[in-house]
Amino acid sequence: MAMVKRMMSLLLICAVLLGCDSFPGPTLRNEFPTEIKVSIIYGDGTKYSETWPSCRTVSVGASELGRFGARSKEVGIDRIVVEVENKVEINLNKEAIDKLLERSTKEKGYLVWVLDGSGIHFSTHRECSLNQGGQ
């Protein structure tokens, strides 16, 4: 298992280095104990909005396929809004997103941006904490 983790980390680093200017953006995970509505506005004005169940993990950066809104890998994210029971819990503008992206690139390992009641924090754990024993 440790070998697989090392290999995955190496592959991620290679992917980032090969596409430095086109890193697709963060991977977000819902660790609220309920479903959330995630809305994203990309730099080109494209919008993405979807309801996620607990523990859903999604890479929300731009993709050539346009799966999550923006079609160009050169397009950044201008806003991320997370609503829980119709109440905005997280509202990040471009400046805040850029700061989090900068911080996350300095961390080791493949980071997931965990969305929960405390806001956003980084995790290298592949599993949702809500799925772990005792919770």
Rank of each mutant, 00 (worst) to 15 (best):
L28R: 00
H125R: 10
R67E: 13
H125N: 14
R29L: 04
L101I: 07
E50V: 14
E83Q: 14
E107T: 07
Y48C: 04
E83Y: 06
M1S: 13
T124K: 04
I90N: 02
G19D: 11
D98F: 00
S39R: 07
R71E: 14
D44V: 03
G25L: 02
Y48L: 09
C55Y: 05
W113K: 01
D78A: 06
T124N: 03
L92H: 11
D21L: 07
I40D: 00
L12W: 11
M8D: 08
L111I: 09
F68H: 08
N131K: 10
I90C: 03
G117N: 13
S9H: 11
R126K: 12
E127P: 04
V60M: 11
V60K: 02
I77P: 08
V38N: 00
R71N: 13
E127L: 10
N30L: 01
A70K: 01
I36Q: 03
S59H: 06
T27K: 04
H121K: 08
S49I: 13
F23E: 13
S54K: 12
E83A: 14
R67I: 15
V88S: 13
E102C: 04
C14W: 08
P24D: 14
T105G: 09
M1I: 12
V60A: 13
A2W: 07
E50A: 14
L92Y: 09
L101N: 11
L17D: 07
E50S: 13
P26S: 01
S54V: 02
M1F: 13
S72I: 01
E107Q: 13
L11S: 04
T34G: 10
V60I: 15
R71L: 12
Y110L: 10
W52R: 01
E89G: 02
G133Y: 09
I36E: 02
F122V: 11
W113S: 00
G45L: 09
G43K: 07
F68V: 12
W52D: 00
E64M: 06
G66V: 05
P24E: 14
V75I: 15
W113Y: 02
E83N: 09
V88N: 08
I41E: 15
S63V: 01
E89T: 05
V38A: 04
C128F: 08
F68C: 05
T46P: 00
T51A: 12
G69W: 10
